[in-house]
Amino acid sequence: MTRTRIHNFSISLDGFGTGEGLSRDAPFGHAGERLHEWMIATRFGAPILGRTGGTAGVDNAFAQQHEPGIGAEIMGAGKFGPPGWQDDADWTGWWGPTPPFRTPTFVLTHRPRPSITMEGGTTFHFLDAAPDEALRAARAAAGGRDVRIGGGPTVVRDFLAAGLVDHMHLVQVPIVLGRGVRVWDGLEALEEDYEIEVVSAPSGVTHLTFDRRTS
């Protein structure tokens, strides 16, 4: 059966998945790249910034699980672009002509627009839909493979609250942001629905995996 997965989603010690003040020049607001430095340092993440090499330890082992078996992605409007991108008819995302998703990718927005086919196999579809509706559309497009919930934190929280996430990999980064968008708000007792494993990495981050209980 198609599963719904979250991978490599970084949060601060105080639970923020992005900072405050998102803009075209600051995709993660005042957080900058601090939430993602652990991943960029790995062999999996180094090519994101056009680098070679990178670490091959625990962080890389988790990071590279991001892609295998994924047939579609769902993301929020804030991951696709900065505030106001809906007013820019030429905006096609942060990733240039060849986005890294290489699957049908569903962008949740209250202002849908026609689909955009990019190089490398990514097609962006824009939906004004509740989590369960978006997941049905993504599953239909995934060809029997899994659906990844790509973020941001509001989308992650909404899918968790709706009980639609089967596997989640969060990375707790040892920084305090103080403001931004928190993941955990309204998700009290989430741990009752999941088996949770915790792995500390030499880089200082903590990997938390949540797998939905089967009984």
Rank of each mutant, 00 (worst) to 15 (best):
D59G: 04
D59A: 06
D59P: 05
N60T: 07
N60W: 07
A61E: 14
A61G: 07
F62V: 04
F62C: 03
Q64K: 13
E67F: 04
I70A: 03
G71A: 09
G76P: 15
A77L: 04
P83C: 12
G84R: 06
W85M: 10
D87Y: 07
D88S: 08
D88Q: 08
W91L: 12
W94Y: 11
G96V: 07
G96L: 03
P99I: 04
F101V: 04
F101T: 08
F101K: 02
R102M: 03
T103F: 01
V107L: 15
V107I: 15
T109W: 14
T109M: 12
H110P: 03
P112Q: 06
S115V: 00
E119Q: 14
G120N: 03
T122V: 11
T123K: 13
T123V: 02
F124W: 09
F126G: 00
D128F: 06
D128E: 11
A130W: 14
A130R: 13
D132P: 04
D132G: 06
E133Q: 14
A134L: 01
A134T: 03
L135S: 08
A137S: 12
A140M: 08
A141S: 12
A141M: 10
A141L: 09
G143D: 14
G143Q: 06
R145E: 15
D146A: 08
V147S: 09
R148W: 10
R148K: 15
G150H: 09
G150S: 15
P153C: 14
T154H: 15
T154L: 15
V155E: 07
V156D: 09
